[in-house]
Computed example of a mutant assay.
Amino acid sequence: MDHSSSQGSRQPVIGMGAVYALLAYGSWGILPIYWKLFGQTPAVQVISHRVVWSMVFLSMLLLLQHRRTELAQLVRSPKTVALLFTSAALLTLNWGIYVHGVNTDRVVETSLGYYINPLVNVLLGFVVLRERLSRWQQLAVGLAILGVGNFVWQLGVVPWIALLLALTFAFYGLIRKLVPVAPLLGLAVETGLMGSFALLAIAYWAATGSSQFGSDWRLTLLFIGAGIITSMPLLWFNNAAKRLQFSTLGFFQYLAPSLQLLLGVFLYGEPFTPTHMITFGLIWTALLLYSASSWMNHRGAERQRG
């Protein structure tokens, strides 16, 4: 086979992978704008509708893709369903903390959580999966811990929203790594498992007259749209993951918290003090070391295979 023609045929795939990655992480980065539109609506109602409408949207996709047989096989495995129930609970908690953070004017802190997340993943891999950490990865994790410690020491408060976002999403990712389920199918089952609880909550609010759904057509459309704006970035991410090497995809993940940080500081006027600068600087340095280490390891592995 001609090598140049092979490269040419692969180029559009890689290009589309980058487009999907930009769509996914770019969407996640500007999502605070959407959640801010809910105003004073309780976060628990926003999340309940987010789960329900995501369940509806993803179920429709599964039907269109004729994957009912796969779904039926999955739900016949109690162990898999139990693990997905746990991951679903973690994902729902992560969503709730995120919306609460955005709507209580702590967008900067939510961005901190997603900057920390890759380093928590590394730490979990070491503790739970017994993965070895390189010297640079150890230094990166140490710098991140130092950054959070600086935040607590200087401001006298623990950045709970950032830490809980990082931890819940890291544990969610760990469980999904251990469960052999396709991404779309797994997410559909997760939203289905949480959807029953969300529907009960929505029914209760409707019965007691405390439901925001239907009170205003704009708010109602926002509730319904929450399912689409939740699901589409995940589908774009899945498409990107199929087309790009994992190490390449990893570099795109910093786009989302960077956009969130810019929104928090420049659009919503949240404070960014010298303490924030030192904390973020330490974590950015940690991420640079982590990314460089991952890239060098990947290049080394490629040379060995070649």
Score class of each variant (00 low, 15 high):
Ser258Phe: 06
Leu71Met: 14
Trp217Glu: 15
Val107Lys: 02
Val19Cys: 10
Val99Tyr: 01
Arg132Pro: 01
Val56Phe: 08
His49Val: 06
Leu199Cys: 14
Ser231Arg: 03
Trp295Tyr: 13
Ala182His: 14
Leu133Ser: 01
Gln260Arg: 05
Pro78Lys: 09
Lys242Gln: 12
Val44Pro: 04
Ala207Lys: 11
Leu244His: 06
Tyr115His: 15
Leu167Phe: 01
Ala201Thr: 12
Thr104Arg: 05
Ala292Thr: 15
Val102Ala: 02
Pro118Gly: 12
Gly300His: 00
Ala18Arg: 01
Met232Ala: 14
Phe280Leu: 06
Leu71Trp: 12
Trp284Gln: 09
Ser27Thr: 05
Ile116Cys: 12
Leu63Val: 14
Ser6Arg: 14
Asn150Gln: 12
Ala226Arg: 08
Phe57His: 06
Asp105Leu: 00
Ser211Ala: 15
Gly101Ile: 02
Asn103Ile: 08
Trp35Tyr: 15
Gly250Asn: 10
Trp95Ser: 06
Ile229Gln: 06
Val158Glu: 05
Gly26Glu: 00
Leu255Gln: 03
Val102Glu: 01
Thr230Lys: 04
Ala182Ser: 15
Met232Leu: 14
Ala88Tyr: 04
His49Cys: 08
Phe213Asp: 10
Glu131Phe: 04
Arg176Lys: 15
Thr273Ala: 06
Gly173Asp: 12
Gln138Lys: 08
Ala241Ser: 13
Leu31Gln: 00
Gln212Asn: 13
Met232Asn: 09
Phe151Cys: 03
Arg303Ile: 07
Leu185Cys: 12
Ala240His: 01
Phe223Ile: 09
Leu83Val: 02
Trp284Leu: 12
Tyr290Phe: 14
Phe251Val: 10
Val122Glu: 02
Gln40Phe: 05
Met296Asn: 13
Ala18Leu: 14
Gly125Trp: 00
Leu71Gln: 09
Arg135His: 02
Gly269Cys: 04
Pro183Gln: 10
Val265Thr: 02
Leu37Gln: 09
Phe38Asn: 03
Arg132Gly: 01
Thr92Ala: 13
Trp160Pro: 00
Arg218Gln: 15
Ser215Met: 15
Ser54Ile: 09
Leu255Asp: 08
Leu234Gly: 04
Met55Leu: 09
Leu221Gln: 11
Ala162Ser: 09
Ala170Lys: 05
Tyr254Asn: 04
Thr275Val: 05
Ala43Gln: 11
Val108Gly: 03
Gly192Tyr: 05
Phe151Gln: 08
Gly142Phe: 11
Ile229Leu: 04
Val157Ala: 04
Arg303Gln: 08
Gly149Val: 05
Arg305Pro: 10
Trp295Val: 11
Trp53Cys: 05
Tyr114Asn: 11
Tyr114Gln: 07
Ser215Gly: 15
Thr69Trp: 06
Ser231His: 01
Gln304Glu: 12
Phe266Glu: 09
Phe246Glu: 07
Phe126Leu: 03
Leu133Gln: 00
Gly101Val: 04
Ser134Ala: 02
Leu235Arg: 02
Ala72Leu: 09
Ala201Val: 12
Glu131Asp: 07
Ser215Ala: 15
Leu219Gln: 14
Leu124Tyr: 05
Gly186Asp: 05
Ile202Gly: 09
Ala182Asp: 15
Val189Cys: 11
Tyr34Asn: 00
Trp28Phe: 10
Leu263Ala: 01
Trp205Lys: 14
Thr168Arg: 00
Trp205Pro: 03
Phe223Val: 07
Gly39Arg: 08
Pro233Lys: 09
Ser258Cys: 11
Leu71Val: 14
Gly300Asp: 00
Leu199Ser: 08
Phe197Ala: 12
Gly192Ser: 11
Leu84Cys: 07
Met55Thr: 06
Pro257Met: 10
Ser258Asp: 10
Leu163Pro: 00
Val127Ile: 05
Ser5Thr: 13
Gly29Tyr: 01
